[in-house]
């Protein structure tokens, strides 16, 4: 489809000898939310970590296959992974603001370390990103407080703001709400739906209700294979694969 911002072809990933992903094919449409579900260890985290080439930073890890980002293969030999990561942002399971940095410095860390120093630019981006992450109203008076002094849910939205500040067209989220309470979770879910108009989101989740609530398409992974991928509404109501049905009805996993 011409509308696809990302298309994955035959992606395999290894940790040493162990193959964690077995030839995954998957397309992601622009301005959509894609949910990745599956039991622990099924490779969904590894999959998203291959999309910003973070997977290869683990000692002994490797990947092969094609990941076309806006038509260009990010695994081509002459591609700099650092530049890919500016286009494909990531939010992690545990909120991980940089310690010893203020809220403000956390948000603009990506820009600052990329060499942007103009205060006016940084201020503008910080406010914009914090607004996008629905955090501005809560922190606008404590921008110089330590990022780690915020609550867990606020920290996670701070991390989202930090990722958004470098304006990536794609945002990967690796179980972003699994360490949060229900209210913070609801805020992040709302945020994800909001963000869809600006960017494309790929989200790993263990919570099937969450996937059903906020995603357009859902992919079900099992033992390193992509079992089923389709519209969220049909995957959860009329799954094509027996394994998918068993998983979403709680037969295993």
């Amino acid at each position: 489809m011409p509308d696809d911002i990302l298309s994955v072809e035959g992606l395999c990933a290894w940790f040493g000898e162990h193959q964690a992903l077995k030839s995954i094919d998957l397309n992601v449409a622009s301005h959509s939310v894609t949910a990745l579900i599956g039991p622990s260890g099924c490779g969904k985290s590894t999959f998203v970590r291959c999309l910003n080439r973070l997977h290869e930073e683990v000692p002994g890890a490797s990947a092969s296959g094609k990941v076309l980002l806006q038509g260009k293969n990010i695994y081509d030999a002459n591609v700099d992974p650092v530049l890919i990561r500016r286009k494909v942002g990531m939010v992690f399971q545990k909120p991980n603001p940089f310690p010893a940095l203020s809220v403000f410095d956390n948000v603009v860390a990506g820009l600052k370390l990329a060499g942007i120093r103009r205060k006016s630019v940084l201020k503008e981006v910080a406010e914009k990103s914090l607004r996008q992450a629905a955090l501005w109203e809560e922190v606008k008076d404590k921008l110089d407080k330590a990022g780690t002094s915020l609550s867990g849910g606020q920290q996670q939205r701070l991390c989202i703001a930090r990722a958004l500040a470098v304006e990536p067209p794609i945002l990967l989220m690796d179980e972003p709400t699994s360490a949060l309470d229900p209210i913070s979770t609801a805020k992040i879910e709302e945020l994800v739906v909001q963000l869809k108009k600006d960017i494309t989101i790929i989200m790993v989740t263990h919570n099937m209700q969450q996937a059903a609530r906020i995603s357009d398409r859902t992919a079900f992974f099992l033992l390193g294979e992509l079992i089923e991928f389709g519209d969220t509404s049909s995957l959860f109501t009329v799954p094509k694969e027996k394994k998918t049905e068993q998983y979403i009805t709680g037969k295993f996993g």
Binding site: N52, L54, E57, V82, L83, I84, R85, R86, K87, G89, M90, F92, K94, N96, F98, P99, A109, G110, L113, A114, C159, R162, A163, V166
Partner: peptide, 21 residues
Amino acid sequence: NHLREAGLALGIPRWKVILRI
């Protein structure tokens, strides 16, 4: 390690992540 990864995921080169974070 997740702080290193957070830095890398922002598109910061590894040497800068080590030095500044």
